[in-house]
């Protein structure tokens, strides 16, 4: 049976969901990558994660609802998603992968649709089922996660035009790359914190030295000193450049 592939962009994820292997090939063939739909799916993933934290029935909810913190959920969904995209792109570009950042992003997002649907079903089920019937919930989540896994492999395979073993190997390496990226991020954050601490300690030092001054005045002085330092550096650089030009001219003249 032939399918009409001239469908609106929002229908593609569902089409791909029903055709794990052919779907991504069709998507590639029709060049129907749509970033907007992908971002909507990521947003949906985030919303569903928040909902499953808050709305899962009491009998099946083992998260600590006493303290609701959105930061871990943001990291678990949005940050991890984009780290995956960046890591996979950075890695596979070096190893003959044909996917662009946009294509990888779209394929990964489309692959997540079954997981999102499974989570949504589980939120509803958890409010209807008792503790002894939790096997249904486990079943739904296992099936959807497996489905998402299959879609992800297929999507990565298509977007990079790899063989399946190569795809799986590079997906595993991508996980390592993600770890590296996250570690570097943490490092960067702590480094900036150090810089902040350094600046702040200078500020407090000045505060002690000139304790008769207003703190606000000190801030202005501090900013002034930094600007002056910059000005000196820039002035020195310009003078150096002028000197160079003059030298050149002299050479040319002589």
């Amino acid at each position: 049976m032939r399918f009409n592939l001239d469908m609106p962009a929002w229908k593609w994820p569902f089409y791909i969901m029903r055709h794990p292997f052919e779907g991504f090939e069709d998507l590639r063939w029709k060049k129907a990558y749509n970033m907007k739909v992908a971002l909507v799916i990521v947003a949906a993933l985030f919303i569903v994660s928040v909902c499953s934290e808050l709305m899962t029935g009491f009998l099946h909810n083992y998260s600590d609802v006493k303290i609701f913190n959105i930061v871990p959920i943001v990291i678990r969904t949005i940050v991890i998603f984009f780290t995956w995209v960046i890591g996979n792109w950075a890695l596979c570009t070096l190893f003959d992968g044909e996917g662009t950042m946009k294509n990888i992003c779209v394929n990964t997002a489309y692959a997540l649709v079954p997981y999102i649907i499974g989570q949504a079903i589980n939120i509803i089920l958890s409010n209807c089922l008792i503790k002894g019937e939790s096997a249904f919930i486990t079943f739904v989540s296992y099936v959807t996660i497996l489905w998402t896994g299959v879609l992800l492999i297929s999507g990565m395979k298509t977007v990079h035009q790899y063989s399946i073993p190569k795809t799986i190997v590079f997906m595993l390496i991508t996980l390592l790359a993600m770890v590296v990226i996250l570690i570097l991020l943490v490092l960067l954050v702590s480094l900036f914190q150090q810089v902040y601490v350094f600046v702040y300690s200078i500020y407090t030092e000045l505060l002690y030295r000139f304790s008769n001054l207003e703190p606000t005045a000190l801030i202005f002085i501090f900013i002034g000193v930094i600007v002056a330092l910059f000005a000196i550096v820039i002035a020195a650089y310009t003078a150096f450049e002028k000197h160079q030009i003059a030298k050149e001219r002299k050479k040319l003249n002589s």
Binding site: F58, L59, V65, C128, I130, K131, G132
Partner: peptide, 17 residues
């Protein structure tokens, strides 16, 4: 029983359902 006893809530919910 809500957020006080999971097993108690389970029994009550089962009968209520």
């Amino acid at each position: 029983f809500y957020y006080n006893s999971r097993s108690g809530y389970n029994d009550a919910f089962k009968s209520w359902r």
